[in-house]
């Protein structure tokens, strides 16, 4: 008696094949100059690859909701760390005063 029935071997090989194809695809797309899209494309493919590894190699596809919650929680916290930090970095170079006020204030000094 086994605790969990083992997965079919071909699913692992199919997963491997898919991951290899995606690796080649991401490499090829990276060599093209996609401009602003290049990072989203690269990361999008990475997310798909990661999802394949998590779902099939790590068996999350057939795991309990709790495991899924744990993963969601860690990703949520990572997102919080990144995005909340960016509330600072993305607004840091803005002046507190709107630009129009600056323009109005500057000639007055002359």
């Amino acid at each position: 008696m086994s605790l969990h029935p083992p997965a079919k071997a071909w699913t692992y090989w199919a997963n491997f094949l898919a991951l290899c194809v995606l690796t080649v695809v991401t490499w090829l797309t990276a060599r093209m100059d996609l401009g602003a899209l290049s990072t989203p494309v690269a990361l999008g493919i990475a997310v798909i690859k990661a999802a394949l590894v998590v779902l099939f190699f790590m068996h999350v596809w057939e795991s309990t909701p709790l495991t899924k919650l744990v993963i969601a929680m860690s990703l949520f916290m990572l997102t919080v760390l990144l995005t909340f930090m960016f509330t600072d970095y993305m607004t840091r170079n803005y002046d507190v005063l709107p630009p129009a006020d600056h323009a109005a204030a500057a000639p007055g000094k002359h």
Binding site: F84, T87, D88, Y89, M90, T91, R92, Y94, V96
Partner: peptide, 16 residues
């Protein structure tokens, strides 16, 4: 989600 309140005088962006 509140950590930056330790940094109000550290040069944090005023919007943040």
């Amino acid at each position: 989600i509140v950590w930056a309140h330790h940094m109000f005088t550290s040069g944090l962006s005023p919007y943040a």
